[in-house]
Amino acid sequence: MGSLPLSEPLRWPYAEFDEKIFQIHSRLRFSIVVVCSISIIATIIFFYTRWICRFSASNPPAPSDSAIRHFPPEPSPRRGLDLAEIENMPIVLYRNLSAGGGKFHEAECCICLGLFSAKEKVKVLPPCRHCIHSECLDKWLSTQSSCPLCRASLQVDSPV
């Protein structure tokens, strides 16, 4: 049997590099520490501020007696019409265009989208002449003060 030839030790190509290339200089090390410290402090401040805002929003301070006396709450604007104003609107019988009346042009209620039938009770809004089922309009005007179709105002402003 033949003897195996002795091979030379392996030479790594990286042995030729100088280790000074891989050293981190002191200025760079200091800069990295400063940037990391600033990032950590900014994160802590962010979460602390968020916690403070959430805590103060859930527990608003109670108004003092002097603030209540000097600044009374403003009255909220009235949204709907009064029941008396709603009941005073005229109720008419719907007449179809093909029936020869020709007074009303709508064929369906703009609130419930139901078709009008001949001789059905509808209310006609004064400013815009739109006709709507009486029951639908009563519910609408209890929360809104305008025509549901064209948004014309139905409130009579006071002369004050």
Results as ranks from 00 to 15, higher is better:
G2W: 04
G2L: 14
L4P: 04
P5N: 15
P5A: 15
L6W: 09
S7T: 13
E8N: 12
P9A: 06
L10A: 08
R11L: 13
P13Q: 13
Y14V: 14
A15Y: 08
E16F: 07
F17A: 12
F17S: 09
F17W: 09
E19V: 08
K20D: 08
F22M: 06
F22Y: 08
H25M: 10
S26T: 14
L28N: 08
L28H: 11
R29Y: 15
I32K: 06
V33K: 09
V33N: 08
C36K: 05
C36H: 05
I40V: 14
I40Y: 05
I41S: 07
I41H: 06
A42K: 06
A42S: 12
F46A: 13
F47L: 11
T49L: 08
R50A: 14
W51A: 13
W51G: 14
I52E: 10
R54Y: 11
F55G: 12
F55W: 07
S56M: 14
S56N: 14
A57Y: 09
A57R: 06
A57F: 06
S58G: 08
S58P: 02
N59H: 12
N59V: 12
N59Q: 11
P60S: 03
P60K: 03
A62N: 13
A62M: 13
S64R: 05
S64W: 05
S66L: 08
S66H: 09
A67H: 05
I68Y: 04
H70Y: 14
F71E: 04
P73C: 03
P73F: 02
P73M: 03
E74H: 11
E74P: 03
P75K: 11
S76V: 08
R79W: 15
D82L: 14
D82V: 05
L83Y: 13
L83F: 13
E85M: 09
E85L: 11
I86L: 03
E87L: 07
V92N: 02
V92Q: 02
V92T: 04
L93R: 09
N96V: 09
N96S: 10
N96P: 02
S98A: 14
A99N: 10
G100K: 03
G100E: 03
G101Q: 03
G101V: 05
G102T: 04
K103T: 15
K103V: 15
F104V: 03
E106C: 07
E106G: 04
E108N: 08
C109I: 01
C110M: 06
I111N: 00
I111T: 00
C112R: 02
G114V: 04
F116S: 01
S117K: 08
S117Q: 09
A118I: 12
A118D: 10
E120G: 03
K121Y: 05
K121R: 14
K123Y: 01
L125R: 01
P127C: 05
P127Y: 03
P127T: 04
R129D: 04
R129P: 01
H130N: 02
H130C: 02
I132H: 00
H133I: 00
S134R: 01
E135F: 05
C136F: 01
L137M: 03
D138N: 07
K139H: 13
K139W: 05
W140D: 00
S142Q: 07
Q144A: 07
Q144R: 09
S145V: 04
S146P: 02
C147D: 00
C147P: 00
C147Q: 01
P148R: 02
S153Q: 10
L154S: 02
Q155K: 14
Q155C: 06
V156M: 08
V156F: 04
V156A: 11
D157A: 09
D157S: 13
V160G: 13
V160T: 15
